[in-house]
Design a protein around this nucleic acid. Sequence first.
DNA 1: AAATACTGTCATGAAAAATATTTCAGTAAT
DNA 2: ATTACTGAAATATTTTTCATGACAGTATTT
Lengths: 137, 137
Amino acid sequence: MTKSKFAISVHILTLLTSVKEEWLSSEYIAGSLNMNPVLVRNELSNLKKNQLVESKEGKGGGVRLAKAANKITLGDIFTAIKKNHIFGLAKNEPNPKCPVGNQINRHLTDLFAEVDQVVEEQLHAVSLGDFQERFEF
Amino acid sequence: MTKSKFAISVHILTLLTSVKEEWLSSEYIAGSLNMNPVLVRNELSNLKKNQLVESKEGKGGGVRLAKAANKITLGDIFTAIKKNHIFGLAKNEPNPKCPVGNQINRHLTDLFAEVDQVVEEQLHAVSLGDFQERFEF
DNA sequence: AAATACTGTCATGAAAAATATTTCAGTAAT
DNA sequence: ATTACTGAAATATTTTTCATGACAGTATTT
């Protein structure tokens, strides 16, 4: 998981929420995010895989929300972008001969899973609709 | 914040917990983590700044816990290593002319602060002593 | 049927961040 | 005086993230 994938996906989905049923192009979305359209398409690809958006190819195509903004939670977005735990293990395998090094990754992994779950629950309490209401248009 | 700084610091502190009052050298600790001693010293420097460990220079020196393992929580470690929010904003400034791009970072930042706090609270519920008890020695 | 405007995907390159290594000045015990 | 440490700076290497270009495929419009 890239730390900023969540921000990018929430941005995209908030944008889609704000235009209701309209199809937006990756180019247009990239203009709001100020980033490369290919990266946006990559994120969209993931959101689509997770059934948060649907797309239409060809001229006049683009993407839009796959369901109502009230039916999508920030937790759904989190699980969609989540690849690894929020916290990461150290790069190298700890020393297996050390009693601590031997077990640490197992215990850390358990802990990290608990943290992920708490965050997910917290984020499930906020729908995309709720989030969008925080904006002043 | 590096995603793995937390894992590294918890490892170090668990190791220190397991040897009670003993002074451990950065070289020894690095052996358990299987990483470069200089990186360990960098982490120790941060932990020391946050009063979680104390150090002794010279021969026979090293580091040890600055207080009882029961008086240090994983939340304390989290705040010690925390530099930015758990989630990050996108690299580029969003388009200020876009109504969403205009406000998104403000709202995301608020959200991210709430997430950080929930995680911190969760981690405060576990002391280093508690964590160490999960190990089988 | 040709032009246009999209998605979807791959391949490659550039920039940034994380990690590793070397070195050495300073300190304290032996 | 020697040894074994911390602390810190400078630099190199590796890994990850982000950016860009290219293009095949698809649907709409003229």
